[in-house]
Design a protein around this nucleic acid. Sequence first.
DNA 1: GAGTAAGCGAGACGGTACGTCGAGTCTTGGT
DNA 2: ACCAAGACTCGACGTACCGTCTCGCTTACTC
Lengths: 188, 188, 188, 188
Amino acid sequence: MTRGRPRDTAIEGRLLAAAAEELRHGGYDGLSIDRVAERAGVAKTTLYRRWASKAELVVALIAMMREEIPFEPSDDPRADLTALVTAIAAGLSETPTTLIADLAAAAAREPRVGESVRALWAERHGAVTAVVAKAQEAGLVLDHVAPALLVDQLVGPLYYRLLVTQEPLTPEYARTLVLSVLGPEESP
Amino acid sequence: MTRGRPRDTAIEGRLLAAAAEELRHGGYDGLSIDRVAERAGVAKTTLYRRWASKAELVVALIAMMREEIPFEPSDDPRADLTALVTAIAAGLSETPTTLIADLAAAAAREPRVGESVRALWAERHGAVTAVVAKAQEAGLVLDHVAPALLVDQLVGPLYYRLLVTQEPLTPEYARTLVLSVLGPEESP
Amino acid sequence: MTRGRPRDTAIEGRLLAAAAEELRHGGYDGLSIDRVAERAGVAKTTLYRRWASKAELVVALIAMMREEIPFEPSDDPRADLTALVTAIAAGLSETPTTLIADLAAAAAREPRVGESVRALWAERHGAVTAVVAKAQEAGLVLDHVAPALLVDQLVGPLYYRLLVTQEPLTPEYARTLVLSVLGPEESP
Amino acid sequence: MTRGRPRDTAIEGRLLAAAAEELRHGGYDGLSIDRVAERAGVAKTTLYRRWASKAELVVALIAMMREEIPFEPSDDPRADLTALVTAIAAGLSETPTTLIADLAAAAAREPRVGESVRALWAERHGAVTAVVAKAQEAGLVLDHVAPALLVDQLVGPLYYRLLVTQEPLTPEYARTLVLSVLGPEESP
DNA sequence: GAGTAAGCGAGACGGTACGTCGAGTCTTGGT
DNA sequence: ACCAAGACTCGACGTACCGTCTCGCTTACTC
C-alpha cells in the first residue's frame, strides 16, 4: 500500500505553536487561520489538510495543552485539597480570562470543541475528585453528599468568580473554599 | 429639552423579538445584525442607535428575558434557598448555553459589557445572598465562612456545570447543593 | 422612494482604471480581483457590489474602452465602408487579443455576459450595416445577397484573423476586404 | 541507450481521452489536471512527465484531434466549395461553442497552444484554399483579390457568427456565403 | 540473475485567486 | 432628531487549481 509523500511532521508543531500564540492574545475569535498559517510559514491549504476548520484546530490545540500535572497525594487530605485548589486557582489566574471564556464559549458552540475542552478540564480536576473521595472515606467530610458534588463546590466557584462575578482568585479564596467544604480543623 | 423626532418605541420591541428568535436558532454567532434588522423591518442604523454593538444588544435581550422573580422570603430559610437555587438552575437550563457562554466571553473582553452582565447576575443572585445571611443569623449554618462564599458554593457550581462540564442542571442537583451547604435537616 | 447612500461614482472609475492597468499587463488571467481592489483603494466587496464576477468586470471594462466612434456617412459609400472597416480593424488591433478571445469565451459560457458582449459588438458594427444597405440601394453591390451577409464578410474576417489565424489586421487588409465585397472601382 | 523502466504507452491514450472528455464539458478552464489524472486512473506526476503544463497537454490533445478529412476535388469548384464550407459549418455546429471559444482564448494566451491550434485549423481549411485557387484559375472568380482573402471571407464569417454574434450556422448560410463570393451561376 | 535507473501511485506542499459573509460606520433623502 | 436604504471598510473563511516535491514500490534493461 503506497502512501504518497509523508506529511512533514515538523509543520504540525509549528502550526500548533503559532495557533497557541494567537489564541493567547486574541482569544478564539482573534485566532485567524491566515495568520496562523503565515506565522508557521506554511500555506493555508496545508493547515486545512490537517484540520477541517478553525474549531478542529482549536480542538487539537487544547488536546496538546493537556499537560500531566503530576500530583502525589500525601496522608493529609486537607493539605492535599488546599494545594490542589490553590494550584487550579493559580493556573486560572495566570491564563487570560478572555481565553478561558472564549474556550468555554467555543465549547458550547462546537460539539467537537466541547468534547475536547471537557476532556482537558476533566483531566485537570481528576486529582481533586480522588482526594475528596479519600477524605470522605477518612471521615473528614460528612457522607450525606456525593463526592462529585463536593468537587463542584470546590472548583465551580473558581470558574464562577472568573467568568461571572469577575472577582480575583486569591490563594486565600482557595483556602476558604476548602475550609468551607471540610469544616474547621478539629484541635485535638 | 428634547428636540427632533422622538424614537419609535415600538421598534425596540420588534428588534428584541427578532433578536430573540435569531438567538434561539443559530446561537450567539448565528445572530446576524443584518438579519435581525431585516426581520424587524428596520434599518441597521436604527438598531445601532439603540445598542452600540451586537454584545450590547444581547445584554439588553437577556435583561428583557429575565422575568422579575418576585421573591417573598418565608420563615424557612432552607425552603427559600432551595426554591431560589432551583429557580436559577431552571432559568439557566432554559437559556441556550451558547448564549450564556458568549455573554461571559463578551463580558471578559469588553468592560462595558462586563459591567452590564455583572449587574444582571448580581441582581439575579441578590436574593440568595440575603437568605444565606438570614440563615446564618438563625444559626442554620456554621459561621466560620463568609456568607458570600456560601453563595459562591451554591450558585457557582451551576455555572460550572453549564460552562465547564456541560452536565444537566436538574432540580435534584439544585436541592443537593443546598443540602450540602446547610447540612442535613435536624429532626427535633 | 428612499434610495440609501448613493454609490461613490468616483470608485467605479478608479476600479475600471485599475482593472485596465492590470489587464494591460498580465492579460485576463493576470487580472486579480484582489489586486484591482487594492490598487483602486477599495474593499473587495465594493467591487463585487458592482460586478458579480471577474468576467462581468471585464465586460464593463471593454464597454468603457470602446470610444464612441461618431460616424458621419458621406455620399461615398465605398469610402465610408473603407473608413469603418479600417477603424474596426484598428480598434481590434489595439486591444490585447487575449482580452477579446476571453471575452468571446466568457460570452459563450455565461448567457449574461454573452448578452452584454453581443450588444457591445452590435453597436460597434451597426454603422457598417447601414452603409452596406445604402451601397446596395445605390447599386454598388449586386443584390443577390442579403446585406447582413455582406457585413459578415466584411467584419467576420477581422475576428477570424484575430482569433483563428492570428494574422495582423492591417489597414491594407481592411481595404482589400471592402474591395472584394464591392468589386473594383469603375473608372468612368 | 534507454535505461530504467519504459513508459507505459497505454497511459498516454487514457490521459488524452480523459482530457478530451473534460475539455468537451468545461472547456479549457474547466479542464482540471487533477481530474484528468484521476479519470485516467493515473498519478498527476505521470501526466506531468509527459506534458509540462496544462497548455502543453491541450496542445497534444488538439494535435490528436486533427483527423484527416479526405477531400476529393471534382471538376466543379463551385460544388466543391459549397460542400467544403457546409462541412466546416457542420463541424463547428456540432462542437460546443464554449470549447472553440476557450480554444481560441487559450491560443491567444499561450503561444504554444496558439501554434498548435493554428496548425489544426490550417489543415482544416487547407482544402478550401486549394479549391479557391483553382476556381480563380478557371476564371470563376475575379482576380482582383488574393485567394487567401476569399478564404477568409468564406470561413471567417462562420467563426464570426459562432463567437461574436452567436447566430446559428445553417447549411443555407454556408451556401449563401459561397454564392456571395463566387457570384450567381451563369447560365450558358 | 543481480543492479539499477526510470516509471509509477499517492499525496503533501507552496502559492495564488476566488467569491462570500459578518460587524460597524457613513451618507443620502425623507418624516 | 429619527428613520429607511444601502454603500463602504475591514478582515476572515473555506475552496479550487496549478505545478513541484517526496516517498515507496515496480519493472525491465544491462552488466
